[in-house]
């Protein structure tokens, strides 16, 4: 029973959605199911938040190593949660927009969440540079092709590309680095991306079929 029902739900849901794509009169089912999915995702966020609360609260209770950071995490979590749920600072009270002008959540998004996310991403600039250095040390033909392409694209997409090709006469402009990069982007890179996309699509289609037919049961905590 505890295996049959989830299999049945998965199979029927997936079949209904595939049929809905093929039969236009029942196409609206897709929209309803997408809404159901969004609602379940919202419940999953509640689950995640509660899990975060439980884990960090337990760490503080045990006074485990680094418990002070757990306290920082919990305080920022609870403060944002309460202020966000109450739509503090916004116009229209609880009926207004949750991220409307003047709300604390919009302030947190602009001055805490956005800068932190952008800075973490920008840190990768340093690590990407060291990764490329290590890749270049491998000295294989493939690694060299990859790095030369990266370098050409970087140069071609900045003002340097224009400067380097500025001396070319109009009749040979097509040999310029900017045009070369444009050709690389629209021909070999499109070819590579297309092959990857076809491969990914085949992988997703086969995984979907395996899940639908109950061949892949890993999502229920069982071995495939």
């Amino acid at each position: 029973m505890h295996r049959a029902v989830p299999f049945a739900i998965t199979f029927v849901t997936a079949c209904v959605l595939i049929c809905a794509a093929l039969v236009p009169p029942v196409e609206s089912i897709r929209e309803e199911f997408t809404l159901f999915f969004d609602i379940l995702a919202a419940f999953a966020f509640l689950l995640g938040g509660a899990s975060l609360l439980g884990q960090h609260a337990a760490k503080i209770h045990r006074q485990a190593k680094g418990w002070a950071y757990s306290a920082v995490c919990l305080v920022s979590f609870l403060t944002t949660l309460v202020l966000g749920l109450l739509k503090t600072g916004g116009e229209g009270g609880l009926g207004g927009s949750v991220t409307g002008e003047g709300t604390v959540l919009a302030w947190i998004y602009e001055y805490v969440l956005g800068p932190c996310g952008a800075t973490i991403m920008s840190l990768l600039a340093f690590y990407v540079a060291s990764a490329s250095f290590r890749a270049f040390r491998v000295r294989t033909v493939e690694a060299t092709v990859m790095l030369v392409t990266a370098f050409v694209v970087l140069v071609g997409r900045t003002f340097l590309g224009g400067l380097i090709s500025a001396w070319l006469p109009p009749s040979l402009e097509w040999l310029g680095i900017a045009n070369g990069v444009q050709w690389i982007m629209s021909v070999p890179i499109t070819a590579g991306n297309r092959a990857i996309m076809i491969g990914v699509a085949l992988g997703i289609i086969s995984t979907s079929l395996k899940v639908m037919l109950g061949i892949d049961r890993t999502y229920l905590g069982e071995d495939a």
Binding site: I39, A42, L52, G66, L74, V75, S76, T79, L85, V112
Partner: peptide, 29 residues
């Protein structure tokens, strides 16, 4: 860094929960 990291984790988890509540649970459900 650990301080900022934990602030980021806590704030982003709460932001997503708030968004999920006001943008999915209340209007859709």
């Amino acid at each position: 860094f650990k301080f900022a990291e934990n602030v980021f984790v806590g704030v982003s988890a709460a932001c997503w929960m708030v968004m999920a509540f006001w943008r999915a649970l209340v209007p859709n459900l």
